[in-house]
């Protein structure tokens, strides 16, 4: 491979790669810049750098968009989903990977394809069930749905992690008379934490961003998470670009920061399916 670098110049590569980077990055940069402009300046200078960095959009978005409440709701829903999913999927994956279950292979296959059952097939009956249970317009109701939606993927991911752990520790513990619970708690969990981190990131990102179920199951404005909260805000203040862009910036900044810190794990988790196949 060393020779190839000398055979072709990589200059043309960089020209095209930079064009692609421009396409990916410029729209985001404009979103950020416009979050700091007054409406008047957006009219005069729609795509450029702000002449004055006007930070009042953020305090205004915080107040009229009720971003304090919305962010708290999103943290509760995302946090609840991560904890719930990891508990369900972690112990389930342990059973599939390490305890001999009759029909375990079939279940593993279900969790692999279970992610592809279209939401459109079950969202309406689920809505009616949730109405009967009194779970519409409750955050717990949405958390349970998110746990159900993300646990097949998380189970599959954690199972493949646990299968790859070395057998010796568990054999030794079993010879010493350790129970299933002891092995799970003191051997499997401490060894598979990287798998749990990856699963938590993927599950957390998808529930932070989720729209369809949030817009259907939470209509009370004081309970909405940030995705549908921002949507309502966009519809109400559609012409006030500074304000709605500030709202969008509030939503993506934590994601971008987390992504920059944990880039490798995010990429690994999100492309997992593609590489496994």
């Amino acid at each position: 491979m060393l020779k190839s670098g000398r055979e072709h110049s990589t200059m043309p590569n960089h020209v095209i790669l930079m064009t692609l980077a421009f396409i990916a990055f410029m729209p985001i940069a404009i979103l950020f810049m416009n979050a700091f402009k007054t409406t008047a300046e957006i009219g005069r200078n729609p795509l450029g750098v702000p002449s004055v960095w006007h930070i009042e959009n953020f305090s205004e978005a915080w107040e009229v968009g009720r971003y304090g409440t919305i962010l708290r709701n999103s943290v509760i829903i995302t946090g609840g989903t991560i904890v719930g999913t990891l508990m369900l999927a972690g112990s389930g994956a342990y059973a599939l990977a390490r305890l001999k279950l009759r029909g375990g292979d079939l279940l593993t296959f279900y969790f692999l394809v279970g992610t592809s059952v279209p939401a459109q097939l079950f969202i309406v009956p689920l809505f009616i069930m949730w109405r009967n249970f009194g779970l519409i317009n409750t955050q717990l109701g949405l958390i349970i749905i998110y746990c159900g939606l993300s646990s097949p993927f998380a189970t599959y991911l954690l199972r493949s992690y646990m299968v790859s752990l070395p057998e010796e520790f568990m054999e030794a513990a079993r010879v010493d008379g350790a129970t299933n619970w002891h092995i799970f708690r003191h051997i499997i969990l401490p060894l598979s934490w990287p798998g749990f981190v990856t699963a938590a990131l993927v599950v957390g990102l998808s529930s932070w961003n989720e729209f369809l179920f949030a817009v259907t199951f939470l209509t009370d404005p004081s309970l909405k998470p940030i995705s549908t909260g921002l949507y309502a805000f966009q519809s109400r203040y559609s012409r006030d670009w500074g304000l709605t862009n500030a709202g969008a910036v509030i939503m993506i900044t934590p994601i971008i920061i987390l992504f920059l810190i944990l880039q490798r794990r995010f990429v690994e988790g999100l492309t997992q399916g593609g590489l496994k196949a």
């Binding site: 980077a21 729209f211 995705s227 971008i256 995010f266 999100l270």
Partner: peptide, 12 residues
């Protein structure tokens, strides 16, 4: 840089 837009929600 290429991956960042994939992290965004549809509303963004």
């Amino acid at each position: 840089l290429y991956f960042i837009p994939y992290m965004f929600a549809s509303v963004i």
